[in-house]
Nucleic acid binder design. Structure first.
Length: 156
DNA sequence: GCCAACGTTGGC
DNA sequence: GCCAACGTTGGC
């Protein structure tokens, strides 16, 4: 089984690449969409992800991450004071889980969604599909390789 | 099981 | 702030 690539969105005002850089690693919690959760469930330690800034201008890819741990229970689902509290989720059978990700560097420049749309089809890179709201998406290996060339070296 | 209403995401 | 896309919920 070879390493897989992913694209993970976060709003820079809430948790951006600079936050991750400062913390070194983070629990990617608060995912409350089954498709996104299922993508997380198919992640393996050592997988890589592109960090994507969403809901900002311009949106786009800003950095890299590496999967450190998988199959972790998302603690926010059991915390009534948390925005992502889920009263229907039981401790015996948690509904939501998450992964731990390490900071893997920042690219010199953001690669904008506009540019991604010029370079890739929706099949090649699902994030460019019109109206796509999923916060976690797969990146086919060939597209990941192209992206790394386009983005150039990371700065740690 | 259908489907209308509703809510959320996220681009613009 | 608007709206397209689309997942979720709940009445029946």
């Amino acid at each position: 089984m070879t390493m897989n690539w992913w694209l993970m969105k976060s709003e820079p005002d809430v948790f951006g690449i600079e936050h991750l850089k400062a913390e070194g690693s983070t629990l990617w919690d608060g995912i409350r969409n089954y498709q996104a959760r299922n993508f997380m469930r198919s992640m393996a330690v050592g997988d890589r992800a592109f960090f994507y800034h969403s809901n900002t201008s311009p949106p786009g890819i800003v950095g890299l991450m590496e999967v450190l741990e998988v199959g972790l229970t998302d603690p926010s689902q059991f915390d009534p004071s948390n925005k992502y509290f889920d009263a229907a989720s039981k401790a015996e059978s948690p509904r939501w889980d998450c992964v731990r990700l390490a900071y893997g560097g920042s690219f010199q420049e953001l690669l904008s969604l506009d540019r991604l749309k010029e370079l890739f089809t929706a099949e090649q890179l699902p994030v460019v599909r019109k109206g796509n709201r999923l916060s976690i998406l797969p990146v086919p290996a060939a597209s990941a390789a192209s992206l790394l060339t386009l983005l150039g070296p990371v700065q740690l």
